[in-house]
Simulated assay, not measured.
Amino acid sequence: MSYYQYPQNPYQRPPESAGLSTASLVLGILSLLGFSVIILVPLAGVITGHLAYRREPASRGLCLAGLITSWIGLALAILGYALAIWFFWAMSTGFGYGSYYDDVIFSLGFLH
């Protein structure tokens, strides 16, 4: 009979990587710093954040921070694109002065 004690768990699991969570946080911070003009940056942050939320349960806080910053960056990007489209539309119509509708009315002779 041997009195030598064997280790309880000879195999240890490798630590889980937090690569997707870190990528989501980095992309979220970049989208808040102004890279949301390229709409792919916050969109990639949202996608990697949701993937990390399911695959990496040990780093939920990191991927949650990445998700929040990416969603805010995506909202700012959509708002910025909407304002730019409105601005260029308003500039093309002259902010209501000399628009196409006014030109048609004056050319028909209704408001001379």
Rank of each mutant, 00 (worst) to 15 (best):
G61E: 07
Y53L: 14
G49P: 07
L33Q: 12
H50M: 13
L62E: 02
L40N: 09
A44C: 13
S31D: 09
L40Q: 15
L43T: 13
P42L: 05
C63Q: 09
A58G: 12
S31G: 12
L32Y: 04
L33H: 10
E56P: 13
A44R: 05
S31P: 08
G28S: 05
G49A: 07
R55V: 01
G28N: 10
I39P: 12
G34E: 10
S59I: 04
R55W: 04
L27S: 02
I47W: 01
R54N: 08
S59F: 15
T48M: 06
A58Q: 14
S31W: 01
I39H: 12
L62A: 03
C63N: 09
E56Q: 13
L32E: 03
S31V: 08
A58E: 14
A58N: 09
G61F: 13
R60G: 04
I47F: 15
L40T: 12
Y53G: 07
R54E: 08
R55A: 11
V46M: 04
C63I: 04
S31M: 12
E56W: 15
S36T: 03
R60E: 07
V46N: 00
L32F: 09
E56M: 08
V46Q: 00
G28I: 03
G28Q: 06
R54D: 13
G28Y: 05
E56G: 06
L51V: 10
L27N: 04
C63V: 11
L43R: 08
I47M: 14
G45P: 03
L51N: 01
Y53A: 11
V41N: 10
R60S: 05
G45W: 04
S31I: 00
R55T: 06
C63R: 07
H50I: 13
P57W: 13
L43M: 12
G61C: 12
L43K: 11
S59W: 15
L27E: 02
V46S: 04
I29S: 10
G49F: 02
V37T: 06
R60D: 01
G49L: 07
P57A: 05
V41Y: 01
G49I: 00
T48W: 02
V46P: 03
A52K: 15
G34A: 14
S59R: 11
R60W: 05
I38P: 08
I38N: 09
P42N: 11
L30I: 01
R60Q: 07
L33W: 10
V37W: 10
S59H: 15
P57H: 10
I29T: 15
R54V: 14
L33A: 09
L43F: 13
G49W: 10
L32I: 04
Y53N: 01
V37Y: 00
H50N: 14
R60L: 12
I39R: 14
P57D: 06
H50V: 06
S31N: 12
I38V: 09
V41L: 00
L43E: 06
V41H: 03
S36P: 00
L30E: 00
R55K: 12
P57L: 09
A52F: 05
I38T: 14
F35T: 03
V46I: 14
G61A: 10
G28D: 07
T48S: 08
V37P: 00
H50E: 07
F35K: 02
L33V: 09
S31F: 06
P42A: 06
G61L: 11
A52S: 10
V41E: 04
A58W: 15
G34K: 09
I47D: 06
G45N: 01
I38L: 11
S59Y: 09
